[in-house]
Amino acid sequence: MKTRKRSNAPIFWGLFGAGGMLAALFGPMLVFITGVAIPLGLLLPAGTMSYPKMLAFAQNFIGKGFIFAVISLFLWHAAHRIFHSLHEIGIHAGFGAKLLTYGVALIGTVVSAVVLLRVGF
């Protein structure tokens, strides 16, 4: 019988799924808050995203976790989908495609982890 190689996809597929779920539940509202409501001064109190408030949020254990989950999982979700799409339009799973997708997600994950650790607790 043919021996088959186990796929490592569950790791990337799992991250894709987690990020997709997070983006589906909170993505639209997050974009609205950070990219529309706050810049235009709509709806939310002034200073909602002021430096002291955001720093305190990033220093809070739950806040830290939320920021890290959103940035890293969104990136892994997007990386997995874009990697597949490249394959689908004929750019096949080479090192370059992996670097461009999963590589960026990995860098983003490391950078956000470092910043979140350095802002203190």
């Binding site: 990020g19 993505g27 430096y51 990136l75 979700h77 983003g108 956000s112 910043v115 979140l116």
Partner: peptide, 26 residues
């Protein structure tokens, strides 16, 4: 299918925007 898959580009762009914000916060 390709349209809903391509939403990933926007998710990535938004995540990078937030990442830049986090770096600036730091």
């Amino acid at each position: 299918y390709m349209v809903h898959e391509s939403t990933a580009l926007f998710v990535a762009a938004y995540a990078i925007t937030l990442l830049v914000g986090l770096v600036r916060l730091g």
